[in-house]
Design a protein around this nucleic acid. Structure first.
Lengths: 339, 339
DNA sequence: TTGTAAGCGTTATCAT
DNA sequence: ATGATAACGCTTACAA
């Protein structure tokens, strides 16, 4: 089954390609009669426009690119769902690439998407990403870019995040209100903005509540294997600081690693030590004890990011100025059994 | 920053477009001198071929499409990882779409990909998919198609699966060997081949071991919310058949629903009732009790499916005949605490 | 109302 | 060794 072209339809009806094209696109300067004949034949032949030709002509691909650190991740899966939903509404397709938390890959993926001439790019940065030259090349190509979740404050483009600092501040304040006093923090790597902000929120909450900040209670989880990071550092914290009464983890997966270690060693949660996660993964509601955590609206982050990107694509098409937005979505504390 | 074209390079060097194109593609009938000049200028201008034009000319998109029922799923996430890895090796990009377990969406997604003229399509069918006309339209378009995981036996194309019947047979035989006698099965919906096969494997294992098959011990999980299905049916089975001593679940998520219900109601696993899952999700190793399950190699399924698809794309390009393959990957039993 | 023709940026054939 | 030219299939300004 060969794909029919405008040319073939035109030939069969004995009219010009132009008229066929106009008929199919609903132009008004075609007689009802010819229009009808064209549409009928087109349907009969299952005509669909050759997207390669359309792309070339219109310089649009009707495709956007998405680069995320990793796919196997509840949060990102939900982000993708949100993005796909928005894209579908607008008849856009989405090319998905993983950076595997590597800057080197991230650069490569950007080049791939730019060469493919996608109409826009959505990104969450890798943990390794400390400089942003490669992002500037996107902007230099005049390709709309929206960063979400793991963003770079210094890059000028729209951003969709939660207020990580505030969320962490509220989380730790909540722990303090519940009576916990010796609160450890299992933080993320040093580069990602959200890890930094969560750490700062933790610190500020302590200080504002008259609890001195103690850097020896902060443990870094930067092996990109959150779960094991949590497990190993739980071991360490018990060794070095058996007196703690709570842990605020940068991620549910880290928290689940902690829970596993505590369950294995008979440390009772939350009686001996409370555990508070971050993100509200599905898993956190089925583990025992059920994990208290911060709800981070992944689906909504995806939806908003995509929606903003499409707006920018449209503005650009109309040669209108784009005003970059920085959206911060609301989070909330989910109280379960671990705190 | 406008993207430079062959034309511009040619103009700057005062030579023809043809010569520029040849130089860049390493043809031998260009003098070393001009070739060098062209390559240098191209690099300086950051020339990259316009993929729209290349697509149009070569009739290739260097893109494949992937349709899966749902993204938020450990198994599919791993499949995607495998696919992306293979695609990357070959400089192919992947467009990902979800069917949301709906036949209607599945049809629409196929049309989108076909209109986009992807070079090949990878699919796992939705639970609703009972007839396969839409798949035939892919084949009619002469677009290579590989089905994986949830396949249609009747469609002529390559397929990558596990041997679901055997895996289930082995699983239930294992339970019987461990001394369990009254084994319930929480099966998947009626349409998907893998749910059918797992059920058949369950039934055959009972029969081969002299345990009469009892249809009242089979519960259907078809609300596409596996976890709640498991939870609700666990309630039901305890009501109707408190005498059972084991449950073989079609999916880890179903099994986790069961575990949750049993944990809440104080039913001890595996002492009172054993639970065996299927797929080996990450989650199953952190829940308590840790879930025994069947390891289903998602990453490998993705890799193989993609690899076969690319082979078929290449054969087609060379006008060579394609022989469809049906690959069955190995599974194994992961023994943990729940059996 | 219909059609002509140029152009998007490549690649490939055929001359020179 | 180099280049003119046609073609891929579509859109659109401009004529007729």
């Amino acid at each position: 089954m060969n794909n029919p072209t405008l040319k073939e339809i035109a030939a069969q009806l004995g009219i010009s390609i132009t008229t066929v094209s106009k008929s199919l696109k609903g132009y008004s300067d075609v007689s009802e009669k010819t229009k009808k004949a064209v549409i009928e034949l087109a349907q009969k032949l299952h005509y669909t426009p050759n997207s390669f030709a359309v792309n070339l002509r219109t310089k649009e691909s009707k495709t956007i690119g998405l680069i995320i650190p990793t796919l196997v991740h509840d949060f990102f899966s939900n982000v993708i769902r949100g993005i796909l939903e928005e894209a579908e509404k607008r008849d856009y397709l989405v090319i998905i690439l993983q950076s595997n938390e590597k800057l080197e890959f991230e650069k490569k993926q950007i080049d791939l998407l730019l060469n493919k001439r996608v109409d826009g790019i959505l990104m969450s940065l890798s943990n390794e990403t400390g400089d942003f030259e490669h992002l500037k090349s996107i902007i230099a190509h005049n390709t709309p870019l929206v960063l979400f979740d793991k963003i770079a404050k210094l890059v000028s483009c729209s951003k969709v995040t939660i207020n990580d600092k505030k969320a962490a501040y509220d989380a730790v304040s909540y722990l303090i209100k519940r009576g916990y006093k010796k609160i450890a923090h299992f933080r993320g790597s040093y580069l990602p903005q959200n890890a930094i902000d969560r750490f700062l929120g933790y610190k500020k909450a302590l200080e504002d509540n008259g609890i001195p900040y103690d850097s020896s209670l902060v443990f870094v989880c930067d092996n990109n294997t959150d779960f094991e990071d949590g497990y190993e550092n739980a071991k360490k914290v018990i060794d070095e600081h058996p007196e703690i009464d709570a842990i605020f983890a940068v991620t549910d997966l880290v928290a689940i690693g902690i829970i596993k270690y505590f369950n294995e060693t008979g440390i009772s949660i939350p009686k001996q030590i409370a555990v508070l996660g971050f993100s509200n993964w599905f898993m956190s509601s089925v583990i025992s004890p059920k994990l208290s955590t911060i709800d981070q609206p992944g689906f909504e982050i995806g939806r908003r990011s995509a929606s903003i990107l499409f707006d920018e694509i449209n503005l650009k098409k109309k040669n209108l100025p784009v005003i970059f937005q920085s959206i911060e979505l609301e989070t909330s504390i989910i109280e379960r059994e671990s705190t």
